[in-house]
Design a protein around this nucleic acid. Structure first.
Lengths: 183, 183
DNA sequence: TGTGACTACTCAATTTGTTGAGTATATGGT
DNA sequence: ACCATATACTCAACAAATTGAGTAGTCACA
């Protein structure tokens, strides 16, 4: 009830092979719904069994054959239902916060190190996100891009990406604040 | 490798019964590591088997007996190790973003509804967080509270809570922005 | 007298997610 | 000639999380 819809969502804009989809995941959906390639494949098989996606085998020269998946009418219906159903907000599961919550005078340096690591990670991730953002926008300003509305390809992914960017900025701000308190 | 440490962390400040812990989770750790009561009980059993927590049975009149758990030296060591090990940042798994990513002219209203629901939810959650925050601070200002450092009880939980608050504020800001773009 | 909420748990099926290894071909560089 | 990297997958064991049901007593309120 989860990865399922992420896969269907990834297939709405364009079809793709399992391999390609798992790459696509890495580059975009992964920000808010990560999955390994094995998971993607298994999910595609399952969805095929349920008739929500269909596959056609593409013969390739000089490369192994691949199966290219596209969403079916049933799949679209399922996705629409998913969007309509109120799902309880998925939660943040963050073990850094578990670490921070258990801080005490003895482990304070270890916790600070963990926060610094996260700060570094978030910085990197933010850079990556900004790169994706520029790639989506191309020559357009954000205003121009958004003015085109939901008809525009990548409109949805762009909005989701914005959340990812804000999230990492939040991580960075928080981490800096906590580190300065710890000094 | 996950809930385990959250439970140990919850036990560092004070001991507690399974029931109480699962409540404690709801009110604090749950913000970044939610778990159902069943999960907490099972985890406590496991941890007891591994010698990381120990239980004493408390007989109660007019109430069923309860088992009160506390962390052992082994448990503390495990927690320390966990804090020292660099864990890969846990990811946000947010199905609202899956919905948003799959937006198109047909489902735009449904997606907008989902965003509004989230906005409402985040507002409520933020209120709850602010309440917790005031309860922790008591009469102190944040500055005074933080000046006491990690020796202060709830110092860690307070810092973690701050992240939760910033997260929900980020949700709210983002949701409003997206809704205004969709109009 | 009944209702619902709270304390205090247990059991178990099922779904999800993780980890790690394996198969096979092709391209490009040192 | 060799090696890393990329394409395109598959299989299987395991760990973790979710869901749903059930037990049993207490307490406050109408």
């Amino acid at each position: 009830m989860a990865l399922k819809h992420a896969v269907l969502a990834a297939l709405t804009s364009r079809e793709g092979s399992g391999y390609e989809l798992s790459k696509r995941f890495d580059a975009s959906v992964a920000n808010f719904w990560p999955a390994s390639s094995q998971q993607v494949y298994r999910e595609l098989d399952r969805l095929e069994g349920e008739g929500m996606v269909k596959a056609r085998t593409v013969r390739q020269e000089k490369r192994p054959d691949k199966r290219v998946f596209s969403i079916t009418r049933d799949g679209s219906r399922e996705l629409r239902e998913f969007i309509r159903n109120t799902t309880r907000p998925t939660v943040v599961r963050d073990d850094l916060l578990v670490k921070v919550a258990s801080i005490n005078p003895d482990n304070r340096d270890d916790v600070a190190t963990a926060i610094r690591d996260r700060l570094e990670f978030s910085r990197r991730k933010l850079e990556m996100y900004e790169g994706l953002r520029e790639a989506i926008l191309g020559n357009d300003s954000e205003e121009e891009f958004l003015a085109a509305g939901p008809a525009r390809e990548d409109f949805g992914p762009y909005l989701a990406l914005k959340r990812g960017i804000a999230f990492e900025r939040g991580n960075i701000r928080w981490a800096r604040e906590v580190l300065s308190v710890l000094d």
